[in-house]
């Protein structure tokens, strides 16, 4: 049984159809990449399964999302955390007026035991040492790259079974991009499955096990890492070969 299954998902914003009959899945332990050009509905797909779509004015018109075999379609965002699903949203959305430590504390909101929370915060600071010197800084004043680290740390603190990440490398300098992808692979090797939406197809396909290519609100094709990297269409459109 796959960890996450998405069947025939359709979403529209008002009268505009954003995605139509999209199906994909994530197996336990996988990194799955979703790539494709701007505006094809990658974020929409992710937001639909994380419940954020409702606050964006989107509507799920058909489809089913199952996590560990349970139907989670239409769950509220805050309920998904309890299931073990964590999201790094598009644009990071850290709490700008709270400190770095407070952001991490909020990431651990669902953990009741204070000593576990402290341990997990420490673990995140070890995973992202850049944040260590900035624990008391207001998160809104961090650089984009540091904010991305914080967003990642905030979502990983609950040790999710599945991490949904929307463009974690957007707007970052090459060093930071490399660092983010290294961390994702590291986290994955420790047992967290990852669904990764990326514009940076080269990096995403490099890091993933499998991938889906989105085009105009649909999945045009999918495959294992090697078959995608060697695919002519992918090479031409996304890898610039």
């Amino acid at each position: 049984m796959p960890l996450l299954e998405v069947d025939n998902l359709s979403v529209r914003y008002g009268s505009i159809k954003a995605i139509t009959d999209v199906s994909f899945h994530v197996e336990q332990g996988e990194i799955v990449a979703i790539v494709g050009p701007n505006g094809v509905g990658k974020s929409t797909a992710l937001n639909a399964l994380s419940g954020i779509i409702e606050s964006n004015g989107g509507l799920i018109t058909s489809g089913e999302v199952r996590f560990e075999g349970h139907n989670i379609t239409g769950f509220k965002t805050h309920e998904l955390v309890q299931q073990g699903i964590s999201l790094v949203p598009e644009g990071r959305r850290i709490f700008p007026r709270m400190t770095v430590i407070e952001n991490l504390e909020m990431g651990a909101f669902t953990i009741k035991d204070k000593s576990i929370v402290n341990n997990e915060i420490q673990r995140m600071l070890d995973l992202f040492p850049l944040l260590k010197d900035r624990t008391l800084q207001q998160a809104g004043t961090l650089s984009t790259g540091e904010q991305q680290m914080l967003a990642l740390g905030r979502s990983l603190i609950i040790q999710p079974k599945l991490l949904l990440a929307d463009e974690p490398s957007l707007g970052l300098s090459p060093n930071f991009v490399d660092m983010i992808f290294e961390k994702l692979v590291e986290i994955n090797s420790e047992g967290t499955s990852i669904l990764l939406v990326e514009q940076n197809a080269r990096m995403a396909l490099e890091a993933c096990h499998r991938g889906y290519v989105f085009e105009m609100g649909k999945i045009s094709f999918d495959g294992k890492k090697d078959s995608l990297v060697n695919d002519e269409r992918v090479q031409k459109s996304y890898l610039g070969k």
Binding site: S55, L87, M98, E105, M106
Partner: peptide
């Protein structure tokens, strides 16, 4: 903790729901 969750919702209600705050 609850007081901080008020600040979190004040900063960004969607981000708050992402971390499991209702």
């Amino acid at each position: 903790k609850l007081g901080k969750s008020i600040r979190a919702v004040s900063d960004d209600p969607v981000a708050a729901s992402i971390v499991g705050i209702n």
